[in-house]
Write a protein that binds this DNA or RNA. Sequence first.
DNA 1: ATTTAAATAATACGGTTGTACTATTTAAAA
DNA 2: TTTTAAATAGTACAACCGTATTATTTAAAT
Lengths: 200, 200
Amino acid sequence: MGMPKIVDHSERKSNIAEATWRVIIRQGIKGATVRNIAAEAGVSLGALRHYFSTQHELLEFAMNLVKERVTARIVDIMQSELPPREQIMKVLLELLPTDDSSMAEMEVWFAFTFHLKTGGEKPVELNDAIYPLIVQIIDYLDQHALFKQGLDKGDEAERLYALIDGLALHAMLEPDRMNKQRVIRVLNIHLESICTPSAT
Amino acid sequence: MGMPKIVDHSERKSNIAEATWRVIIRQGIKGATVRNIAAEAGVSLGALRHYFSTQHELLEFAMNLVKERVTARIVDIMQSELPPREQIMKVLLELLPTDDSSMAEMEVWFAFTFHLKTGGEKPVELNDAIYPLIVQIIDYLDQHALFKQGLDKGDEAERLYALIDGLALHAMLEPDRMNKQRVIRVLNIHLESICTPSAT
DNA sequence: ATTTAAATAATACGGTTGTACTATTTAAAA
DNA sequence: TTTTAAATAGTACAACCGTATTATTTAAAT
């Protein structure tokens, strides 16, 4: 029984997904056609279809890959041995577009989210992983006695979550005004307001 | 010199713009084709083109109409004679999707914003009117001695702005979790945190 | 070297898109 | 009533879309 040419299947899919990101960043979700993506990835239409049988399947994969990459970076930070407050700050910054790379991820994320919301196709388990993470962060602050007394954990999780996504939105849509420095400044002010007034 | 059939030109354009909103709410920006919009508005393709010579022109008009409608409602609230704190709360709620109508406006707003961002066509003066409004609100609080001392007005404007848009985003994408009651709750908590601890 | 199926390529098809063009209808002014 | 240009309708076209189909190439296993 002979076996044919073998390529790294999942790596090839990732390459195509990354090409999808580049197309979306350059032309928006409207430009994310199978032909544009195939051309950007440097493969033929037939080759692309060999890995993703429908456009929907490709877009879903490309978005999940964004989620995986971001999650992996956050897990790395969580496993580091930084002081709690610094660690939290780094994690939150990971959820915001602070450079070209994360800016691209954010654009892709928002583009997909809106596209899938009104896609008409199956609901697509968006399963936003950010909210549970925020809840976890508030818990983490509380466990390290950094969470200011008198505040409600659930409410503050909701408020921090909204603040993060609002900052992300503004950093993406108005990058000149809401630059990295300003993002960090606002984030620090908010953390200060929900943390116990300890040492800086 | 004879004159032909005359219809209310601007009202007709508004009707078509409102049809555009309904299509976007139902099918997303991807479904906002000139044919879908013409059908929804109950006019022919030629008639639509008589009022908007390009699709881009139509979409731009439809988005600006959203902005005008929201601005008009806010001006109304501003001119009312409510206690400052209640007035501010009503204005902020006007920026958030709290019912089907404002939910629709919000969807249209976000859909347009993202579409125009990566439209490829001319930059389109988005000229977000919300940020100046937030700055105005912070000033208003300060002038009525409601703004907590020790806080920076610029920073708090930025923070409130991000919170508002974050809440709007979550109310739109996760309406079950972030319902109207929860929006008001978070908004109250934040206002409490930046206002002087006066009477409720 | 031959076999085999994965990998890739090329082409085709029905449908939709934005826009353009032309003809017809409408009602206000003459 | 006739004239006139706005308003509307209908059709056409080139380009692009997602997907399907078929043929070819490739390299691993025999």
